[in-house]
Simulated assay, not measured.
Amino acid sequence: MLGWPGSDWQENDAPVHDAPIKAEWKTLNTEARHTFTHFHLRLKICTALVPMDRTPTVGSFVEAEDFDPGDLPTAMRKAYDLYRGT
């Protein structure tokens, strides 16, 4: 499933922040919120500009021409929409 890298989802604990790639990360001053059947999810959104030739420690990059935001699951699309609105 297409999505953004992140920490494990945890209840009432601060997530462990292991960046998926070495970069200068910036945290948005907002969070994406999504409600599943049995829990509420709050996502802190961090962004970075990263060269395409850099290798992530988790996951893989998608070429810009192959990326369609409509392919994202709803929770990941909310994070994307907040980023695009900045």
Rank of each mutant, 00 (worst) to 15 (best):
F36H: 08
D68W: 10
H40I: 11
P73M: 03
M1V: 14
H17S: 05
F67D: 02
K44R: 14
F39K: 11
F36T: 06
T35N: 08
L82E: 02
A64D: 00
T74I: 09
P20T: 05
D81G: 04
T35H: 05
T27L: 11
E31V: 09
G3L: 09
A32G: 15
Q10T: 09
R84A: 15
K22L: 12
L28P: 06
W4C: 02
Y80S: 13
A48Q: 01
C46K: 09
W9K: 15
L82P: 06
P73E: 06
A79R: 00
F61A: 04
A64P: 05
W9H: 10
P5D: 04
W25L: 07
K26A: 11
T86R: 05
A23S: 02
P56L: 03
L82A: 08
I21D: 07
R42S: 12
T74E: 13
A19K: 08
Y83S: 14
E11C: 12
K22E: 15
A23L: 06
P20Q: 06
R77L: 12
D66T: 06
E65L: 06
W25I: 01
P15H: 10
A23G: 04
P56T: 01
D53Y: 01
F61I: 00
T35L: 03
H34N: 05
V62Y: 08
P15S: 05
V58D: 05
D68Y: 13
D8K: 09
M1Y: 13
G85K: 13
R42D: 06
E24Q: 09
A79C: 13
F61Y: 14
P69D: 15
D81H: 01
I21F: 07
